[in-house]
Design a protein around this nucleic acid. Structure first.
Lengths: 115, 115
DNA sequence: CCGCAACCATAGATTATCTATGCATAGAAA
DNA sequence: TTTCTATGCATAGATAATCTATGGTTGCGG
């Protein structure tokens, strides 16, 4: 019930995470969620109900392109590739993340100060 | 218009930031937003429409207690103090933040790997 | 044949934050 | 004295992100 426990990821980072995974090489949707989980050591768990709408959103914005193909398990899967526009977007989002997370760290690192 | 630019803070961190600031000593609402802005070097800017509802939420959950008093500028202001429960909550949220932000860093740090 | 993992997808609920607005007062500036 | 700005609290409504809950298909191991 505690708000921090029911959140599987930090709001606002999903697009960046997806773009980053796709930047590592073409991959299908299901594989993206697997890699995010694996690389994050089981900490980040993207729900399918978050993943697929996000992928469609990113594609619609021209940051990803999609193409049907065969997965490693011999099944139909939609593979995504990063576009040049997507690469620029990823860079921007990384910069923004760094800026914001550093700012949060500043607050968390703030020590008691006497009046 | 880009989603990352219109965000003044990372979603989900506001409660933690407020609790942390209040943990530094009793402070009124307006002062909380000022300190967040100052300590974060003008990066984080909490809107009043986000701040006050958040304060009421935190108070209702028993993490903060409020009391009217006089501000440094001789004006009526509501001062907030952290409760024991709030202190525990803050610790939890910090732990959660660390876990999640480290996970994000793992993804961002992931390098190309050959198949 | 049955069940599960792999794959895609959408609808609706929940919730956080922002924008826009409103009000009141102290002090500086004009 | 009037006016503007900063200080201070507050709410309503819009926006948007993510989750929960579904639903479906197919390949493979038991």
């Amino acid at each position: 019930m505690a708000p921090t426990e029911k959140t599987d990821l930090l709001q606002g980072t999903l697009d960046m995470l997806i773009l980053k995974i796709v930047a590592l090489g073409p991959v299908h949707g299901y594989g993206i969620s697997q890699r995010i989980r694996q690389i994050s050591k089981e900490v980040l768990n993207v729900q399918q109900g978050s993943l697929y709408p996000a992928l469609h959103r990113l594609e619609k914005r021209g940051w990803l392109s999609a193409e049907w193909g065969d997965s490693e398990n011999g099944r139909e899967a939609k593979f995504y590739k990063l576009s040049a526009k997507g690469r620029r977007q990823l860079a921007q989002e990384e910069a923004s993340w760094n800026r914001l997370s550093e700012a949060v760290e500043l607050i968390l690192g703030a020590a008691q100060q006497e009046a």
